[in-house]
Design a protein around this nucleic acid. Structure first.
Lengths: 199, 199
DNA sequence: CACTTTACTTACCAAATGGTAGGCTTGCAA
DNA sequence: TTGCAAGCCTACCATTTGGTAAGTAAAGTG
């Protein structure tokens, strides 16, 4: 039995992910749950605060995903790979989250939102650390490590976001075959990139 | 001396890329050029038609980018790599285009827009062909080739879109160092992925 | 029991939105 | 010279937007 507030957040997350901040009215979010927009305003105060809360919730959930990695894996390359695969899985299971973060990335070009930048910042820095923990990467300059990390995240998130479109273009069969082996191919990409580069 | 129509298209492209379809009013586009929104409506009829025209113009420009590849390169791996690098360069030179297409990808999840799907479809199929022209890839099933292509495009476009945000997080120095060598690293990624996989 | 808080509601509002209708000016062809 | 189309404007409009104000029913809480 989730609270109304939580239900509103979930609904808002879905709609914001699907149509973007400006594409969603607070009335649309609330009436979807059989409420009036004032119920929503009562809980969140304003549309922007609602949006901020949605973003914060996603950030929190991704953080727990990060936390659950933990250091019982001895091999740093394996640790990084596992982590990225977990992110990829999450991206496919919760496409809303990634879509919304992608939109944030786009909107940020002007707005430079603090919430997301802060979250993304620590997230990226952690990944860079994990990469540099690998033997032949320890001396790599930050920007080289960052470029590699961005390539991985790009491969993961772009694919997550493109899913429905790809299904439309190539049909269900090709798409589900693609989906089944994407993790494997991602793993291959990661290992290929990690071993081929570095200082 | 570009026509008013063309100027409106350029302005609209910039604004749509920055703020999305719903985030831009036709008044905003036109007043930016010192016109009223009726001037815009006179040229395009409706907001949706304006948007469609913007998309079409981008599609056309990217097509000429495709066409300029040409087959004078003997080595198919080199041809594919060159092509992808060219796309990456274009993505960095014209970030608006990629941002807008990324937004289209996001919005398409529900809307399934024909223009973009059609364009993206033939674009992807061409890339798959180029990949399969490489010796040890000729027998790879479509979905494997597609996954690889998507990884490349993801790395390229995600980075292109993230640019300003990354600059904000890591500062100008790291970012410009990153930017300077991104093409090189992309090339390494491509060659690593191509040689490590395949049937 | 009185009181306050929570979770909503209806009523309202100013501003912005996309779009229609009709007019004015300029240039150009018959 | 007339006609007419292109390119733009003012005026207007219905609808939607985010948000305020004020109220109400229920559920704690002293």
């Amino acid at each position: 039995m989730t609270s109304t507030r939580e239900k509103l957040l979930t609904e808002a997350e879905r709609l914001f992910a699907e149509r973007g901040f400006y594409g969603v009215s607070i009335a649309a979010v609330s009436t979807e749950l059989g409420l009036t927009k004032q119920a929503l305003l009562h809980h969140f105060g304003s549309k922007e605060k609602l949006y901020a809360d949605v973003l914060k919730r996603i950030s929190d959930r991704l953080s727990t995903l990060v936390a659950s990695t933990d250091s019982d894996i001895a091999d740093p390359q394996q640790a990084l790979t596992d982590y990225l695969i977990r992110i990829a899985k999450n991206a496919r299971e919760e496409p809303h989250q990634m879509s919304l973060l992608m939109r944030e990335l786009l909107d940020n070009q002007k707005r430079a939102d603090i919430v997301q930048s802060w979250f993304l910042g620590s997230f990226l820095k952690e990944l860079i650390q994990m990469l540099k923990a690998i033997d032949h990467w320890s001396d790599a300059p930050d920007h080289v490590a960052l470029a590699t990390i961005m390539q991985f995240l790009g491969a993961i998130n772009y694919y997550a976001v493109s899913g429905p479109t790809l299904k439309g273009i190539f049909g269900n069969d090709v798409y589900s075959a693609l989906d089944d082996q994407f993790d494997d191919q991602l793993e291959q990409l990661i290992s290929a990139a990690i071993s081929s580069k570095g200082s």
